[in-house]
Computed example of a mutant assay.
Amino acid sequence: MSRTTVHALIFRAVDLRLLTSLLGAMLLSGCVSSPPGGVQVVDRGQNQGRAPLIQRQPVRTGHYVVQRGDTLYSIAFRFGWDWKALAAHNGLRDPYLIRVGQVIRFDNRQASGSPVVASAPSNPAPQAPPSQPVSQPVVVTAPVATAPKQPVASTPATTPVTPVTRSATGWAWPTQGAVISRFSSNGSLNKGIDIAGELGQPVLAASDGSVVYAGSGLRGYGELVIIKHSDTYVSAYGHNRRLLVREGQQVKAGQRIAEMGSTGADRVKLHFEIRRQGKPVDPLQYLPNR
């Protein structure tokens, strides 16, 4: 065989390997890319792959059974109700005491102020997924009721107060940092804004009010503080590392309520919401311009 023939065979073999590699790369690219009109991939990493069980529209069917650590305000926040409307719907009056095992109704059936005696399951009842239609009843099994939740004495919080700039409507920024995720009203999971920051950075009350929830019972929010500012407005501060206030305490705008963290999130940030009569609104419409 001549030297020219040998060289030709070698070049053909090299060309064949290159062609095979090119075809493999094209096939791999086709597997990972979405065709036009394909299924949209939604990144939910901010909630560690778990969407919060929080409704945008009020749930109007079924009921919820009060669990330890719940407050009327946290239940209203979770299921998209205005707390006053939910209290009136269930015949609750000031000081709005609820008991473990008590049924909170969302439908038009008569609410019961007495605890429901139910055997505690060996495993916690699974939470309903956020994709559950609003028309489906919401039923959560709770432990056996034992004693009523006592009202928390209203006392001023003792944490430091930082001078802040307020908007014309009285709101101040809850922390320093860039806004990395904005409010969306088109059905997105984000019902507020996310603000980037450092671990342990101060989180401040955005306006004067009373702490009505401090805990980690609302999935997807991590360590959460909810402040009632009036009969119309509440604000929420999620993903904290540590909470510095407790339920019943009175806070001022600029008062330290928590330390920024990443609980229930994939990075350090503050998730901040303002709700008007139970409905999420865009916080940037209330906060002062920077």
Rank of each mutant, 00 (worst) to 15 (best):
A142Q: 07
A142Y: 06
P143C: 12
T146F: 12
A147L: 14
A147Y: 13
K149Q: 13
K149C: 05
V152G: 11
T155I: 11
T158D: 15
T158H: 13
T159F: 08
V161G: 04
V161R: 14
P163V: 08
P163Y: 01
P163H: 06
P163N: 02
V164P: 14
T165L: 09
T165I: 11
R166V: 15
A168W: 01
A168V: 09
A168S: 11
T169P: 00
G170I: 02
G170N: 04
W171S: 04
W171Q: 03
W173Y: 07
W173F: 08
P174N: 05
P174I: 10
T175V: 13
T175F: 07
Q176N: 12
G177Y: 07
G177F: 10
A178Q: 11
S181H: 10
R182C: 00
R182E: 12
F183P: 03
F183W: 09
F183N: 03
S184V: 08
S184Q: 15
S185G: 11
N186W: 04
N186C: 01
N186A: 13
S188V: 01
S188I: 00
N190L: 14
N190P: 00
N190M: 11
K191V: 01
G192K: 08
A196H: 05
G197A: 06
E198W: 01
G200N: 12
Q201W: 01
P202I: 10
P202H: 08
V203F: 04
L204S: 09
A205R: 03
A205D: 07
A205K: 05
A206T: 10
A206N: 08
A206S: 15
S207G: 08
G209E: 05
S210H: 01
V211G: 13
V212I: 13
Y213T: 12
Y213D: 11
A214K: 04
A214L: 06
A214R: 09
G217R: 15
R219W: 02
R219D: 10
R219F: 06
G222A: 12
G222E: 09
G222I: 04
L224G: 01
L224C: 02
L224S: 01
V225N: 05
V225M: 02
I227S: 06
I227F: 05
I227T: 03
K228Y: 00
H229L: 03
H229D: 01
S230F: 09
S230V: 06
D231P: 08
T232H: 10
Y233W: 14
V234D: 11
V234W: 08
V234K: 03
A236W: 02
Y237M: 09
H239K: 06
N240S: 15
R241M: 01
R242M: 09
L243N: 06
L244M: 15
L244A: 15
V245M: 07
V245Y: 02
V245A: 02
R246E: 12
R246W: 00
R246M: 04
G248D: 13
Q249M: 13
Q250V: 02
Q250F: 00
Q250E: 02
V251K: 10
V251N: 10
K252L: 08
A253F: 08
G254V: 05
Q255P: 05
Q255N: 02
Q255S: 03
Q255E: 09
A258M: 07
A258D: 09
E259C: 04
E259W: 02
M260V: 05
S262L: 13
T263V: 12
T263D: 13
G264E: 06
